[in-house]
Design a binder for these strands. Structure first.
Lengths: 216, 216
DNA sequence: CGCCCGGTTGACGAGCGTCAAGGTCGGTGG
DNA sequence: CCACCGACCTTGACGCTCGTCAACCGGGCG
């Protein structure tokens, strides 16, 4: 058990450690300081789908304010540092803490709507590119490149594909200089979205050229 | 423009009429009396994805309470009869109207999470069956069969498939007596889920037997 | 030093999309 | 009452995406 939870105390999790397991009661909402977390479900046959990502600065599962219960498990994808906000604390001071949570809930609702559209109607390349575009904007990084601390299996479980296919798509994106690999870290460049292209090929469509496997 | 909106007045829509278009301001939440509605998005190339269904008894887009704005268009899938609830009315009487809306928002959030899992990790048959199971329980019908007033194109836009493939899956389900067609109306039986099976074949897996086209 | 996780790559096939040509039913106008 | 029309459903042929299986590699860590 962790230390007694105080306002603005810290709580840390190791990689792949659970913040909550499916079905547990929740007495606090975690504000992410550093690291990434995800909500996910594992089917009986082992298939897994990640249904939400939580990044630094965001509130992890703000709707616990309304339900007090985790339907799905949440775990750290990286070493994670959070400040837990007790639900009772959020409720009492009518300083707008509740309003902040409701806004966060609304944002998650819209994010989930966008993911339904992507999973239902977009192909592998579109899904992966739009994931990276979303991550870039949420990380608020105007840098040239953003670090993406996800394994290919994790990306696969977000975008509803297999790790093998994610690997092939990433290689094609790398050929087009839309992503890079630095060591084992994935970097998404400022033109992941593919808007910037001087070659005559089409902007939005993907052609099927075989990956020439020049090691990224 | 409709008649001035009064508490518990009625507002009707024709099939395929819009309750709101994308981006519009919303001053009321519609409680569905009769008929079905959906939220959807159309991509530039014509692909469409339905991201929410609203059935009799449910509140259409309760999160407008928080945002006051429709991100996506909402339209009637059948002739529709609703009672609009003014946002100002919901706010004022602290009799629990707000609480009801927050509960409805929470439920939609969980429904969307389930759809992300289905679209990401389930095959065509699983998606369609689980849609029907969901509809059966939401319609609260313990009847033998439930009427599903959706065209195959609409089902396709919900489950992220093409109408042609939906057609083939429906025929396979019909062979197994899990759905029926009465005239042009689709009926889902009490054992759509496929739990009830006396034949030795597997419960959850689908076999690929060709449809023998005996006209349902 | 060896193990294990994660990434890489090829061969192959299944599931689903695309295209295209009917078919059927209900509504509508003459 | 009938002819026509437009949605919607049906069905076959074909092929692209993506999944599966399997082997291998490379580096970090105990």
């Amino acid at each position: 058990m962790p230390t007694p939870v105080l306002q603005s105390s810290l709580r840390q999790f190791r990689r792949y450690e659970h913040l909550v397991k499916a079905g547990e009661q929740c007495d606090c909402i975690y504000r992410i300081r550093d690291g990434w977390a995800c909500r996910y479900e594992t089917l009986h046959d082992g298939r897994r789908q990640i249904t939400a990502l939580y990044l630094p600065g965001e509130y992890c599962e703000p709707h616990w304010l309304l339900s007090g219960r985790a339907e799905l498990a949440v775990m750290a994808l990286t070493p994670l540092s959070t400040t837990p906000l007790l639900l009772s604390e959020v409720h009492r001071p009518q300083d707008g803490g509740v309003k902040t949570m409701l806004g966060a809930i609304l944002q998650n609702l819209e994010r989930q709507t966008q993911w339904i559209i992507r999973l239902g109607r977009k192909n592998a390349t579109e899904r992966i590119v739009e994931l990276f575009v979303d991550l870039r904007s949420r990380l608020g990084s105007d840098d040239d490149t953003v670090k993406i601390p996800l394994t290919q299996r994790e990306i696969a479980d977000i975008v509803g594909l297999t790790p093998v296919h994610v690997n092939r798509v990433l290689h094609r994106l790398a050929e087009q200089k839309r992503v890079f690999q630095h060591g084992r870290t994935l970097l998404a460049t400022a033109h992941v979205s593919g808007i910037i292209r001087q070659c005559p090929s089409n902007v939005t469509e993907m052609n099927d050229e075989k990956a020439t496997s020049d090691g990224w």
